[in-house]
Structure formats: C-alpha cells, structure tokens
C-alpha cells in the first residue's frame, strides 16, 4: 500500500507556513461548549459597548447590520490544537463599534449571553483585525457556532472569539475571563503557543 494520497500531500504543502506550532489542520468545524447553547432571537439581540466611566452605546440587530459590512477570509486556531484555513465570515469591524465610545482604557472584556467572558488587550481588537460576525460561509451563523453573532479575532486562539457576544466592556485592568481565570493564557497568541497562564 502506498503512503499518503497525492491530494493529501498537496493540501498540506499548500498550507505550509500557516499552521502554528502544535496545531493540526482540519476541514471540519468542531463545536466546543461550556454549557447549554443559548438561542437569542435577532429581535431580542443587542450589543452594548461600555467605557470605564460608564458611557455606553447599544446597537440593535437592525442597527448593527446597517453598519458597513466586511467579509474576512481568515485562518482560525483552537487551543485544543485544530486549525481551520480560509474560513469565510461577514460582519462589522470592531474598529467601527469601539470608536463610538470614548475610552482611555487598555483592555476589553467580552461578555456573552450565556455568562461567558474573555479578556482582551484593546490593541488586539483594533487595526482591522477583529470583527463582530453574523454569517459563516455565506449563511447566518448557527447557534452552536455562536450565532446570531460572535467575535472573530483570528490572530488569537479561538476561545478569545466569544460566541453569543452581547457586550464589550472597556477595563483599565486586564480582568481574567472564563477560561483565563482557570489556567489559560491572558493573551493567547497561537504563534507563540500561549496556551496556559505561564506559557
């Protein structure tokens, strides 16, 4: 029996340089959960950005989808070691949302409808590299993947891309979130293998 098929070798070669250390490529889209999947009707959905002084701005679903839309195609990397290439999303750049609230804080805590939280340096959310997304592969984002809307921060491990996000809260301190307070890294850069808190 021969070894790998030519097709398999070809795909692996095509992704050379795009796989962070310790990761393997997958074409599936695994669902990881830390609780029941919330179902949030879009008519009840909103996103609120709050500054450290309490100033806030809230968008309804209609208002959010009326903002300028972007269509990033990006690689994503899960801390459980799978990576998925060329994922296609649609949504709003976080620059567009965050610039609507004045803040001097350097960090943001994302809060989700299920109580999940994750902490992020502001500099990882700005500069056209992070989004609030509502579509995947041309279809509305399924609830098990974080629909109706989730964060997409592809340059960090995917636990940072909070599903079912409902709020972004500016903080002056870096406040550990759901997994960060239980041993995971505060930053989570897959290229530096920042998996655990002291990596």
């Amino acid at each position: 029996m021969s070894g790998f098929s030519p097709g398999f070798r070809g795909r692996t070669h095509a992704f050379e340089g795009r796989l962070p250390p310790g990761q393997y490529p997958t074409e599936s889209f695994p669902v990881l959960s830390a609780g029941p999947t919330p179902h949030v009707p879009t008519e009840d959905w909103s996103l609120t950005v709050t500054s450290e002084t309490g100033e806030s701005r809230t968008w309804s679903w209609e208002e959010m989808t009326a903002l300028p839309q972007q269509h990033p195609t990006v690689d994503i990397h899960c801390v459980t070691r799978w990576s998925k290439f060329d994922t296609r999303w649609s949504g709003v750049g976080l620059d567009t949302l965050l610039e609507q609230v004045e803040s001097d804080a350097g960090f943001v805590v994302a809060e989700s409808y299920d109580g999940y939280t994750t902490n992020l340096p502001l500099e990882d959310l700005t500069g056209n590299k992070a989004w609030l997304v509502h579509s995947f592969d041309g279809y509305p984002l399924a609830p098990e993947h974080g629909g109706p809307a989730r964060l997409l921060i592809p340059h960090l491990y995917f636990w940072k891309s909070a599903k079912w996000v409902r709020a972004l809260r500016f903080t002056t301190e870096n406040e550990p979130g759901f997994w960060e307070s239980a041993g995971y890294h505060d930053h989570g850069d897959p290229w530096r293998e920042q998996r655990y808190w002291n990596d």
């Binding site: 990881l32 959960s33 830390a34 609780g35 029941p36 459980t80 636990w159």
Partner: peptide, 19 residues
Amino acid sequence: YGTGPGPGLTGRCPGCADL
C-alpha cells in the same frame, strides 16, 4: 460540558445550568 475536545470541563447545576 466540554467532555469532547474542549479547553476544560464545566460542571453545571442540573436544575438551572448555573456554573
């Protein structure tokens, strides 16, 4: 939850799903 390939195991109340 998270007994598959998850970052960790999350145990929740069987009545209200509180953490």
